[in-house]
Design a binder for these strands. Structure first.
Lengths: 205, 205, 205, 205
DNA sequence: TATGAATGAGCGTTCATTCAT
DNA sequence: AATGAATGAACGCTCATTCAT
């Protein structure tokens, strides 16, 4: 049955997730992934053609989940702002919150000009873009509805993602601390005091 | 002459910088660093005790420059906001702008539970914190002077650094594009439209 | 089959034996051991965790054989003197006779303060002591039975081992010569002429 | 002045002696020898063409001293037996008693078929032979004078050297213990009890 | 399909030796 | 003569990948 295949593949992916977030990509040994997945080393190669393929599979899997979450939140009948807020907390409480996931999703976790890297870029970047597009879509919606200022949606999306990242990192730094709202709030309101030159950059009307 | 030592060390550091930003830490071969620095492999080990030491030396060097820049900007007789703006563009036009520097400074570039990682953490994190502190200091100043809202300085600093990072990454994505102001502006003003719930999170008065 | 494991391990051990007796420990390259054993370099590391472990395995193996021989001879219903004689010739015709074995068993073959050396000492010395104890046991028996003088058993054992060593070395020096009995005989009778001060050192009655 | 040359050469030799007996030949770094001798690394190469040459020089130096001692003792107007006894204790109280010297003089300390080893053999063996010859000479004298039995002088010499070696090793094993006479005595008298088959091997008349 | 023993290219590091000063 | 910075060949060990079972 096909289900068996998907099941074992998932087991390997989960094991890989654990090891990669613990040790980072290059310190991850296929050996250990296999052991933790409860399969033999050779078996891993029946499901993934090589080590980079495991990484790509991992990122795909993670982004799939994140995108599903995103789609679900986007469909809710709430204001764009609430959507972004929901997204933020949903992500933060899901898989994405494991220490090391952000690193995993950062292109920087792996190498750069490498031949291997090219494959990463080809597979992963489009997915990252998809997420950015989703967020940008919400922003655009917010602008149209007058809830947001007329900002560049893609830049705002990137800022949003970065803010999320910053949040996670600070959480990782001081574990146990309850999720602070301040970062999210900063994203919405900026740091300038009322009347103190908002619009000053000439971007606003 | 003693200058000779520092000179050669710098040459190695520069070579290492090039290779690491190109390929990432683990794909950096000491061999190649040596070749690019125009010295023999063994020579590298006269200046750095091992490979991690090269990386640490690299980060130290980079952060030293960034901190120097920061100190210089902080001393200028301009408003906190202008300081942050200046910092943003000064960094962006300096060493920090090489594609890969942010990655290099990200803890994620290297591994995690590793013994080696411990050394990284011990040497690099304090320096990162120093930069964050510097930014947080400016934010605090801005708050005291009434230019900024009463936000948590450290969170704002992290947000600022993340915004910078986002900016660089988007710049890396679409090279050639002139530095966009949008991200910076978003940092200052947030995305909410006037009167639309700024303070909504209850953080404000 | 489990036998396969032991078989291959033995093949590596035999190859290591050949190389180490030929070149000495530090000039033994794991590469060459592997080649001679007919396996790949990496395979050696499946059977021995590192190079010192190969050496220790080698000594263990050799001493095991020697101790087995010793036990067998000790069990024979012959006089202590005959036991020592038998031991001498049995060893001399067995594995122990390869040029270089004595060297291999000499602590001196390897280094001294080294961390590695500590492992050697921990593993090998006890075994050497075991052999010395076995010989000392025979000597004690001989003393009790009145066949030997009242000498210190451990000193005699050390002397015996040294004599054996001397024999092997002289044999190595002039290969092809049939085993000379003279060294063995010297061990039993000493060099003093009859009546010429045997006991003179005051040790005898 | 030429004296300066010999002086510095000696300093290097002494440093080498210390390091080699401490760490063994292969763990001896030319660097450390130079440092301990108080000269620069390059200087060592002005006095010795390469590392093996240092070792050979070391052995030459040591054997020279031992041979001088030997000659001196041989010239004394005492019985052959006394000569051997004196030699034993003179050596034991001189340079030869450093832990590790015996190892140093053992061919086994270094490698075997190696090209380097050939040089060792060529230089050192003759010297070892010289010492053996000296001892054999004393033995022969003893036989002629009726003090010793009619044994093979070279075999006896080898036995003598081995006994000395055994003594030193046991001394090294249990440091602090006063030199035991037992080994020496065993050499002279053997272990057989009176009337119990001395001559039994048919070597005697 | 699954296994895990075997492989061997590849890398970090050491250290004897050289040579410009 | 003396120095010590520079060299680079050499080696121990790792680990992604393969393949006979």
């Amino acid at each position: 049955m096909k289900a068996k295949y998907a099941e074992k593949r998932l087991a390997i992916l989960k094991a890989a997730f654990a090891v990669v977030t613990e040790r980072g990509y290059s310190d991850t040994k296929v050996d250990e992934v296999a052991r933790r997945a409860g399969v033999a080393k050779g078996t891993v190669y029946l499901y993934f053609k090589d080590k980079p393929a495991i990484y790509i599979g991992l990122v795909d899997w993670l982004l799939e989940q994140a995108l599903a979450t995103t789609a679900e939140v986007m469909a809710r009948p709430i204001s764009p702002r609430r959507k972004l807020e929901e997204l933020f907390s949903t992500w933060a409480s899901g898989v994405m919150s494991s220490p090391g996931v952000m690193a995993l999703l950062s292109m920087e976790n792996v190498n750069q000009t490498n031949t291997v890297m090219k494959r990463f870029k080809k597979h992963v970047l489009p997915h990252i873009m998809e997420m950015q597009d989703a967020v940008a879509g919400i922003v655009k919606q917010g602008i149209e509805q007058g809830e947001f200022r007329k900002v560049e949606p893609r830049a705002a999306a990137m800022m949003y993602l970065s803010a999320f990242r910053a949040e996670l990192m600070s959480a990782a730094r001081s574990p146990g601390a309850r999720p602070r709202e301040s970062v999210k709030e900063l994203f919405f309101c900026g740091i300038l005091a009322e009347g103190r030159g908002r619009r000053a950059n000439g971007k606003g009307k």
